[in-house]
């Protein structure tokens, strides 16, 4: 369990994190969302004991990060933003250094390093110095050091930033495979990632908590939740669609030649729309019911706050 209580951080003039409180349970993969400068990294830096909060507290599995720093840090695997590593070391010597810091020796140390290396597929670059590696490999070295001691808490700051789609997929797979009994917190501004790996999403902007729920619940806050989007071969009677019960409005998307029929909150309009199409005999090429658009929810949440 991670408990964050009224965590606040002031820098000189501005407030990076403002009275943030939430808790995370084992088994949860928490997606930490927010625009750049929202306070995601600052929160993570306080959770891992790098920064001291101005006020408030955070505890990791019962260890207060300010008072019991070392014990709390032992529970955490942390990938800082940008995955900094000692560039002049080889991948192997770097991971062995981390293993020794984590208290492993001899056979166990080698076994831990080998396991982490296998998990993130670093076998081919083991003897190369880290500064010669590509961005994707460097990120994976950072991940390897974070998971090496099989921590109960994984805190990953933008783990897939700068990776290509294959590498992103791979990292998400890895996070999912590790997640079942752990607490995982990942920060990201890639929204598809939240739907792909997270069981819970927390949105912050200007250091304040704006939303907290499952990705599905977040999607359902979208205007497009339960909307029916269709592509037809002929112009449709928009007024007739708008007049259907439960319909909040009709939006035309010029670029895709599609129409989105928005539902009123709590209404399901698919049946009505479908019946009207059958009645009028419209030729419809594509039709789907939307779950909601995360990016739209994200925008309306964070922009409303920043203006």
């Amino acid at each position: 369990m991670i408990e964050i209580t009224q965590l606040t951080k002031h820098f000189a003039q501005h407030t990076a994190v403002d009275n943030l409180s939430f808790s995370v349970k084992p088994g949860e993969v928490l997606g930490f969302l927010g625009p750049n400068g929202a306070g995601k990294s600052t929160t993570m830096k306080m959770l891992t004991g790098f920064l001291a909060p101005t006020s408030g507290s955070a505890s990791i599995l019962g260890f207060d990060i300010q008072k019991d720093t070392l014990k709390a840090q032992q529970q955490i695997g942390y990938l800082p933003e940008g995955a900094p590593c000692y560039g002049d070391m080889t991948v192997r010597s770097f991971l062995e250094f981390i293993a020794e810091i984590r208290g492993f020796k001899g056979v166990e140390k080698r076994a831990r390093v080998t396991k982490a290396v296998t998990q993130v597929e670093l076998e081919t670059v083991l003897e190369q110095s880290i500064e010669t590696l590509s961005k994707g490999f460097k990120r994976r070295v950072g991940l390897a050091q974070a998971i090496l001691h099989d921590p109960k808490v994984l805190i990953l700051d933008e783990p897939t930033d700068g990776l290509d789609p294959n590498q992103k997929h791979q990292v998400r797979k890895l996070i999912q495979s590790l997640a079942h009994d752990k607490i995982v917190i990942i920060s990201t501004h890639i929204l598809e990632e939240v739907s792909a790996v997270c069981t819970r999403a927390v949105v912050i902007a200007h250091g304040k908590l704006l939303a907290d729920g499952t990705p599905l619940a977040l999607e359902s806050r979208s205007r497009y939740h339960q909307a029916v989007t269709l592509v037809a071969e002929e112009p449709l009677d928009k007024d007739a669609l708008a007049a259907l019960p439960g319909v909040a409005g009709v939006e035309e998307n010029a670029l895709e030649h599609s129409l989105s029929i928005l539902a009123k909150p709590g209404e399901v309009i698919f049946a009505q729309v479908n019946a009207l199409i059958a009645e009028r005999g419209w030729k419809v090429r594509e039709l789907n019911v939307e779950r909601g658009r995360l990016d739209e929810v994200f925008r309306s949440l964070t922009r409303g706050e920043s203006v």
């Binding site: 830096k45 891992t48 004991g49 790098f50 070392l70 014990k71 840090q73 032992q74 955490i76 942390y78 800082p80 933003e81 940008g82 900094p84 590593c85 000692y86 560039g87 981390i98 810091i101 984590r102 050091q145």
Partner: peptide, 14 residues
Amino acid sequence: KSGTIELLMTLPIT
């Protein structure tokens, strides 16, 4: 400069 201080200071060392 390289940011490794964040790594070092979040490892369990005094």
